[in-house]
Amino acid sequence: MLLPRLIPCLDVDSGRVVKGIRFQGLRDAGDPVERAAAYAAQGADELVLLDVSATPEGRGHALATVRAVRRVLPLPLAVGGGVRSAADAERLLEAGADKVAVNTAAVVRPALIDELAATFGRQCTVLALDAARRPGGGWETVVRSGRERTALDAVAWAAEAAGRGAGEILLTSWDRDGTGEGYDLELIAAVRGAVAVPIIASGGAAGPAHMAAALAAGADAVLAASILHDGHTTVGELKRELAGRGVEVRS
C-alpha cells in the first residue's frame, strides 16, 4: 500500500527560499540547503523545489541550488520552474533532480509533456498545475507564476496531461496559496475523478486537519510551505498528528 507523502516545498528565487500569498509579496524564508536538510531530518517524504526567479540572473542560481540540495538530501527531489525543453529537464536531472515539473511551457506547447515522458519516463514527468476558481464554477489554469489566467479548464488540462505522459500532478489552488485556509478539496476531488496518476495537493495548508481532508478527497501527497518555513510546526509534528487522526504515514 502506498503511504501518503508529506512534501515540503521550497520556492527559490536567486538561491534563496521565498514565500508569498497567492504568488505575490515574496519574503525571504531561508537557505535552501539548510531547509532541505532540516526537513529531511524531520521526516519529510520528498521535496519539491520550484525556481520562481523572475530574472535570468536569478534563474542562473537554480542548477547550483539543485546540486547543493542533492548532496544533503536522501529523498526524492522534484524540481520545476522555467523548464521549456527536454534539454532544460536534462540539466536539472544531471544536477540532481529525480523528477521535473513543467507548468507554463506545457500549456503553451503540450507536446513538451510527451517529449519528457518519452525521454525520461512518466515517473519523472510532473505537471505543475495552478488552478483558479472561475466565478461561474469550475477552475481555470493559471500560468506565469500565477500572473496570467488562461481559458484552459484545469480539470480537462490535468486529464490531457496525464494522457500525454505526466506521471504525477502537482495541483496548486491559486485561491488558497499561502492563505492557510485549507486545500481546495473540490478541486482535488474533481481532478481525482479525471486522472489515475498520483496527485500532490498544494495551496492553503495550515495544519494536519487540512492535510487529512486533502488525502480523503483523493490526494496521494500533500505539499506544505508557509507553515513549515514560518516555524509554526515541523514535518514530524504534522505526521504524528496525522497518525493520530488514523492516517498511516511513513515512520
Partner: peptide, 10 residues
C-alpha cells in the same frame, strides 16, 4: 491501480 506506483511503500 494508481500508476505509476509512485511513493513510499512497505
Amino acid at each position: 491501480l494508481r500508476v505509476p506506483h509512485l511513493g513510499w511503500n512497505r
